[in-house]
Design a protein around this nucleic acid. Structure first.
Lengths: 147, 147
DNA sequence: ATAGTTGTAACCTTTTTGATTACATCCATA
DNA sequence: TATGGATGTAATCAAAAAGGTTACAACTAT
């Protein structure tokens, strides 16, 4: 199975707000047009990012803005903010037979390994800040985006 | 989202065959009783493990046996054998708007990071051999399992 | 007041998993 | 060589999760 696209949608959302913030009113509809999903999906994403203290959303008048230093937001933070993985990454079969020596011990045998693997993945996400992505984006997109 | 339990089921299956091989006929039903899933699920698992060259299954008479040195089987090999993750671990939103500087570049920005994260997770799985798990299992289960 | 937005519930569809049933095929052996 | 126990595999089913979509109340700048 794959990790939900909420994660990449959320990163995309932050980058749109960053790049267009100030020059445009970054409404859910505007962002949705860049991500190409339903505006409600973006609103839900913004709620998560707001709960994580990354953005602020103007209720009636519209528009989102970033309220945390992008140097202090890693991909891992975004990944967590939108609950990309609920608890454990690996899905265990739930009722191994406790009357079998394998069934009785399989959890003890695997839990640590699997947790290590998950942690290794998450630690990679911690290495990347939104600031570095934003910087790279600016270079790729050229100094003055127009779309 | 979570990675399919096929993975932990497959590891469990191999360990049952290892621990009881020789003393019992490890049929799909016997293994299913330890894992606590439907025997057909085990048969499908065994087909995957067979295709990966890890086990041999006696068609008519029944029973599976391990045909590869457990030192040469890592958790990663099992993970691959049962297609735990099909391609990319992270699910990307599929149609970002190419007319937006963010939509146009989001893939280029994230693909490497996400691939690194996935690779880090998989590399952890490569560190663990079935032989080490089997050894640990023997210790935990005591020298002479009876169930 | 109004027009444009957000917050949020409700519902639907699609996809994926795994459970289950069913049965043809296979094979050791009695 | 008939048979009983297994496997291989297709066909369904149901449950869970993710997104898409509609709808609308509440909010706010003007």
């Amino acid at each position: 199975m794959k990790i939900t696209s909420r994660f990449t949608v959320a990163v995309h959302t932050l980058l749109v707000i960053y790049l267009f913030g100030g020059r445009r009113k970054t409404t859910s509809e505007f962002i949705a047009d860049s991500v190409q999903v339903n505006p409600v999906v973006i609103r839900r994403t913004l709620l998560s990012l707001k709960a994580a203290g990354m953005v602020e959303v103007k209720a009636g008048s519209g528009g989102a803005s970033i309220v945390k230093d992008l140097n202090d937001i890693t991909l891992y933070d975004v990944y967590r903010a939108v609950d990309s993985v609920e608890g454990e990454l690996f899905h265990f079969h739930e009722h191994p037979n406790p009357d079998c020596p394998v069934g009785k011990n399989i959890h003890a045998l695997l839990d640590d390994c699997l947790a290590d693997a998950q942690r290794a993945m998450e630690n990679e996400l911690k290495k990347v800040t939104l600031a570095s992505l934003a910087e790279e984006l600016k270079q790729k997109a050229g100094g003055a985006p127009s779309a």
